[in-house]
Nucleic acid binder design. Structure first.
Lengths: 220, 220
DNA sequence: GTCTATAAGGAGATAGAC
DNA sequence: GTCTATCTCCTTATAGAC
């Protein structure tokens, strides 16, 4: 049975992953240095190599820790809705909720970690490095395919490119909102608050669903 | 009269800016190294310091070269539509066109530079470094304010937060689509092609305008 | 598992010759 | 304006003691 320290700090691997997440958020994957990371995590430099093998290994572990569970939540939520619908098409509002709510919940975490988690999303989205991308493209494709299937079922008259573009646009709006934590709040003088998950979710669903429903009428 | 070499390569400053743009696209602001940049630009390391003073100075120059003109195009296009409307509210489709077309045009540049330019947009969007952000926040605020005014004029019943969120969502969808050049094309097996500016513009306008128009009816 | 010590090279920046 | 040479510090990574 692994140790569970009664109080204070998490174990070394977790501290390293947390620190790495912060460093990536601040400086990107290439700019994040192991020395900054081990200082913040209060571990020795060699500890990183013992647990993660290399810098790339650590980066991959950082991504897997967050995005593995996220993928599962996406598929689980969509599956729950589909099971309840018993083969009938889902309303686009439900499909959007299954797309948006898991990442919004992830972003509503404890304030100390919130900025690191959300900015990590932004760093990934814009990272062309193949070694980093490879960790995520597989599961991204799986999640996108699931949502695309649901949308095609609900909007049979819509063309495939129209749906593909719209899925990209929704991901983009979400990623952009998430990866600028604090900035949107400041620039809108508090009118927009990303931590109010329910409000943001409602706003996004109200904004996007008419654009999807328009595809039900004409061939899009 | 400054030299204009008859053929071949642009001048040193331009070569450095181009190379820096590529390096930022690949590795981010922190990860881009001057040594990689000068090698690609085929200039001596000291040349960077002669023309740009420091790494930060070079980064700022890279941003200003692209985003100064972009801001002007945004305001010019919106102003043109508003002049033609003579005080009457603009259709949301026109406001969206003025938001979307200038960046889409920028992204449709010569193939060699296209990826660097579009990924630069992504890198900026996700960069929390204050020194980098400071270069852009001012003009971003000006452009956003202009579009917000136009939207409030066209949709007087809409609440301010509803409009602010929607503007963020549109920017996000655009930035996300732009900063993944090539990836969307591949993942959709060619169904989505970012270089077809007119198609992408039409797709985005069709997707977003119903969500704005919905605000004309109810208080959003 | 955790540490010290160190290798081997890359980083930004500058002085000074031409 | 352009270049060489160099300073100083930081980088990833590893060998080996405990």
């Amino acid at each position: 049975m692994p140790k569970m320290p009664k109080s204070s700090e998490p174990d070394r691997q977790t501290r390293i992953l947390d620190a790495a997440e912060s460093a990536i958020a601040e400086s990107g994957f290439a700019g994040a240095s192991l020395r900054d990371i081990v200082q913040e995590a209060q571990v020795n430099l060699a500890t990183v190599y013992y647990y993660f093998g290399s810098k790339v290994g650590l980066m991959e572990a950082v991504l897997k820790r967050r995005f593995g569970p996220l993928r599962q939540e996406h598929l689980a939520m969509l599956g729950k809705f589909e099971a309840a619908a018993r083969g009938r098409p889902l309303p686009v509002e439900q499909i959007l909720e299954a797309m948006l709510l898991p990442p919004l919940r992830l972003a509503a975490k404890a304030p100390a970690k919130r900025q690191a988690v959300t900015r990590l999303i932004g760093r990934i989205v814009t990272e062309p490095n193949p070694q980093i991308q490879k960790v995520l493209t597989g599961q991204r494709a799986e999640v996108r395919a699931a949502f695309l299937r649901a949308l095609q079922h609900s909007l049979p008259k819509a063309s495939l490119p129209a749906l593909l573009w719209r899925v990209e646009f929704v991901w983009g709006a979400l990623a952009f909102a998430l990866c600028n934590p604090g900035k949107i709040e400041i620039e809108t003088h508090g009118a927009c608050d990303l931590t109010k998950t329910d409000e943001v979710l409602a706003e996004m669903i109200h904004f996007f669903s008419p654009g999807f429903r328009a595809l039900a009428r004409n061939a899009g």
